[in-house]
């Protein structure tokens, strides 16, 4: 499994074989608070980098989740429908949202690494 990269909009992405797994960062889940509902994209949908593809609802607000890279939605984490709290309890693991077949796997490497993202999050973005 490759290194995890992060988008400015707080999604993480990690190449796992042919597809890239996407979720939201620990910083993001903490800022959202208790997640109660996740609206996942349709499998097969073609998405552009930065496109709003999912919605995560906490007790107090709804927030968009953006595709960190361009590609095609390959799978969604159906377990989140019944157990959206996984986004809070294990954001970087069981709380993943969807996988993308990248248009260009090289796009992942252009995103922030963990250290750069930590500085980005700490700066209050």
């Amino acid at each position: 499994m490759s290194q995890t990269r992060f988008a400015e909009s707080h999604e993480w992405v990690r190449l796992d074989g042919e597809t890239a797994v996407v979720g939201i960062s620990d910083h993001a889940q903490n800022a959202l608070g208790d997640v109660v509902f996740v609206d996942l994209p349709e499998v097969g949908r073609e998405v552009e980098a930065g496109e709003s593809v999912a919605v995560v609802e906490s007790v107090k607000a709804a927030s968009d989740i953006y595709a960190p890279i361009a590609g095609t939605i390959a799978a969604v984490n159906a377990a989140l429908v019944d157990n959206p709290g996984q986004v809070n309890s294990d954001p970087m693991g069981e709380g993943w949202f969807f996988t993308i077949t990248p248009r260009d796997a090289g796009d992942i490497g252009k995103l922030m690494d963990a250290d750069a993202y930590a500085r980005h999050a700490e700066a209050g973005h």
């Binding site: 007790v59 107090k60 809070n88």
Partner: peptide
């Protein structure tokens, strides 16, 4: 305070 560490729920 909108919440404390325990969380809204």
């Amino acid at each position: 305070p909108v919440q404390y560490p325990a969380g809204i729920i």
